[in-house]
Amino acid sequence: MSPKLFAGIDVGASATKCMIISEEKEEAGSAVAKTGIDLAGDAKKVFEDALSRVDGGGVAVARIVSTGFGRKNVPFADASRTEISCQSLGCYFHFPRAIVIVDIGGQDTKVIRTDADGKLKGFKMNRKCAAGTGTFLEEISHRLDVSLEEMNALATRSKKDVEIGAFCTVFTGTEILARIREGLSREDLAKGVYKSVVKRAMEMDTLVGDVVLTGGVVAHNTILYDMFSEILGRKVLIPPKPQLTGAFGAALYALQEAGQPRLE
């Protein structure tokens, strides 16, 4: 009998991710692509891409669980789960103890509490506002006239603490322009912007105990690790592939639910 594989597909606001795992919960293949307007098409493409990377090929995927904001738009998935449960399961696999997960995604930021047994105990999501999310960083990178990829490097070169006071993406953009006129460097402003992302997450909940930092924004903006650790006064935990923990959690659900009927 050939070994079985299980897939998790995380259709996020900015990126669609797929993780395929073995029965031993090891990664067999993964892929990430930008989310466009055809969510079902994107999910299929990413799934096929991940599948093509599986060693040996031709192996059947026994069950697929979708997650993320587009989880209901994956017609070939057998079941769906919210990204909150999937992040909880995915992060707990790497850090099997009571954890507080901070998931910073393209469209929202979540604080998720998982207990020592891996059970989801509670969660909070940012309000209807983009400040502190990936979209916020994207907008600010335009203001600073750098690519999103460059902004992280820019901020790490800063030697000065700058407080960004605004509470809103649009007004932060205006504030950035005013501070540039005051003569502040782009490096310092970029760092100030990242600091505001950390502060927005910290005001959502009390981050007591082991904090796991995850999500696409964390994966691409490594300065956030150091900032969170510095502000919390202790090292934060980072899973191996922060952008893929949601998809990984979904794959773990697929494995857990193996043999169960397909849910419409």
Binding site: T82, I84, S85, F123, M125
Partner: peptide, 12 residues
């Protein structure tokens, strides 16, 4: 966002 929150609350 609200739909996701409610669904996750039930999953909890």
């Amino acid at each position: 966002q609200t739909k996701t929150n409610i669904e996750a609350f039930v999953e909890q």
